[in-house]
Design a protein around this nucleic acid. Structure first.
Length: 454
RNA sequence: GUGGUUGUAGCUCAGCAGGUUAGAGCGCCAGAUUGUGGAUCUGGAGGUCGCGGGUUCGAGCCCCGUCUCCCACCCCA
């Protein structure tokens, strides 16, 4: 009777070839992040539950993985309390830790905690897994990597512009064609104000966000259900129908949102950002998408979302500006902006489109065949010499049939096999066979190294 | 949290109206004269048909329960 080899729902093992491809994505991200002046940090997998709750909206709170306290955690609970407490209240009593849900909130906590040592504006990147107790499906995992870049400590719109450049840079390097959707929470606030429904902001944005997926009727229906007056819903629909290129949309909205100072400010910000981008000329298509809202309720300014053009998949990158995320940790008035790249979805997209370069398959450059005895000892020396000269090399550990050793090289996609039998050893040579072309040459160790490094 | 779907060899799946020792392809292992792979040929190993119960002379196939997988909604990377 053996224990099941199953792993928790929504988690995955990664094979060597998958890891090679994943590493490739991380390398590209990291290289670009560094090129724009961002530096790495890491934070723990778990945070105090109180650090995380209340930052992601009601839905988000439910999806936080909580960690049961150690010891006798029911000690101060009578059975009555167990029955009566709501799930969140009970969780607060018996769980003081939780797995991180994203990297932005831990980052805000980090900034406040280490503010004395940091140089502001602080630019950091962070590539770590996060956990969500969501129900898994296509492109959705319970454990996945986020790759965040954020600047905190400045309100400059140049940061938004820079993040857009980073997004453009990364996806063009990876070869993924994308649409970048942008909007501004202030514009959404303005719309809610103009509708006379400022206090229903969240309900309105949540409904609006579904526009492209569900359609007008469903959105209208949801709003009425949430108790928003029909006239306001109708007015919203009219505003959402604003069409044209970004500049036209902005102009059109200006006349509609005149009475909202916040809304006008959002439009000005967006316009300014887009004009910088016009100068810089991004490769990706940038679309002002009025229905883009984003559920994370800490965003206050610009918001972004990136979707792959050729694959049906949720967003592969998203983010925005948050004005007061550090406030709750005791440092008010510090504005930041950042985006998060979803490495796992990017992987899925690239896999589907076969975008991984063949170099990511790589392993050793050369396999030394093992003949055992004196030849084995001699081969080991040459092998060591290869490694000291920067050639990734390995020797088959057993002196088994050549057929089997060659098949191993073939399976591992090792391009060369070095054969050193008694003849080669006496001649101080090795037979180097290229498995792709079938060509086999008798070379000195030095010549072989030169060949393998080319 | 809501709705739907799936569960047979390591993988992808067949399995006729319930009837004898459950199949295929791929993969794996071993050979085709002992220093050369990816091809071909030959042979072989491997399954308590998700789990529990029921109906039946008899169940992979029917019924009930349960778990699981995947998909969609919600939300998001």
């Amino acid at each position: 009777m053996s224990v099941s080899t199953a792993i928790p729902k929504g988690t995955r093992d990664f094979s060597p070839s998958e890891m090679n491809r994943r590493k490739y994505i991380f390398q590209v991200l990291e290289e670009v992040f560094r090129r724009y002046g961002y530096l790495p940090i890491e934070t723990p997998a778990m945070e105090l539950l109180s650090t995380l709750t209340g930052k992601y909206g009601e839905e988000g709170d439910r999806l936080i993985f909580k960690i049961l306290n150690s010891g006798n955690f029911t000690e101060d609970l009578d059975s009555d309390a167990l029955q009566k407490l709501s799930p969140p209240a009970l969780a607060a009593r018996i769980c003081e830790k939780a797995l991180r849900y994203d990297l932005t909130v831990p980052f805000a906590r980090f900034v406040v905690q280490h503010r004395a040592e940091l140089v502001f504006p602080f630019k950091r990147y962070q590539i770590q897994p996060v956990w969500r107790a969501d129900r898994p499906q296509r492109g959705r995992y319970r454990e996945f990597f986020q790759c965040d870049v954020d600047v905190i400590g400045t309100r400059s719109l140049l940061c938004e512009v820079e993040l857009m450049q980073i997004i453009d840079d990364i996806f063009s390097r990876l070869g993924i064609l994308v649409n970048i959707h942008v909007n501004n929470r202030k514009i959404l606030t303005g719309i809610a104000e103009v509708l006379g429904q400022a206090e229903r902001f969240t309900d309105i944005t949540v409904a609006m966000d579904k526009l492209d997926k569900a359609g007008e009727d469903k959105v209208r229906e949801e709003m009425l259900q949430k108790g928003i007056p029909e006239t306001a819903a109708e007015h919203l629909m009219q505003i959402l129908r604003t069409s044209g290129n970004p500049a036209e949309k902005i102009n059109n909205l200006r006349s509609q949102l005149q009475s909202s100072a916040t809304g006008m400010e959002g439009l000005a910000e967006l316009e300014s950002m887009l004009s910088y981008l016009d100068d810089l000329g991004l490769r990706a298509a940038v679309d002002f998408d009025l229905s883009l809202a984003r559920g994370l309720n800490y965003y206050t300014g610009a918001i972004f979302e990136v979707k792959a053009k050729e694959v049906q998949m949720g967003s592969i990158c998203g983010g925005g500006r948050y004005d007061d995320l550090t406030g709750i940790f005791g440092l008010p008035g510090v504005s930041g902006v950042g985006v998060s790249f979803g490495a796992d979805r990017i992987y899925d997209v690239m896999n589907e489109l076969k975008l991984f370069p063949s170099a990511t398959e790589g392993t050793s450059r050369v396999l030394f065949a093992n003949f055992g005895g004196e030849e084995e000892r001699y081969s080991l020396k040459i092998l060591d010499m290869m490694r000291r000269n920067g050639v990734s090399a390995e020797m088959y550990p057993d002196a088994v049939k050549m057929k089997k050793q060659f098949a191993y090289a073939d399976d591992k996609k090792i391009p060369y096999v070095a054969v050193i039998g008694s003849e080669e050893r006496q001649a101080h040579q090795l037979s180097l066979k290229n498995l792709n072309t079938g060509e086999q040459l008798a070379l000195s160790p030095e010549e072989a190294i030169a060949k393998l490094k080319s």
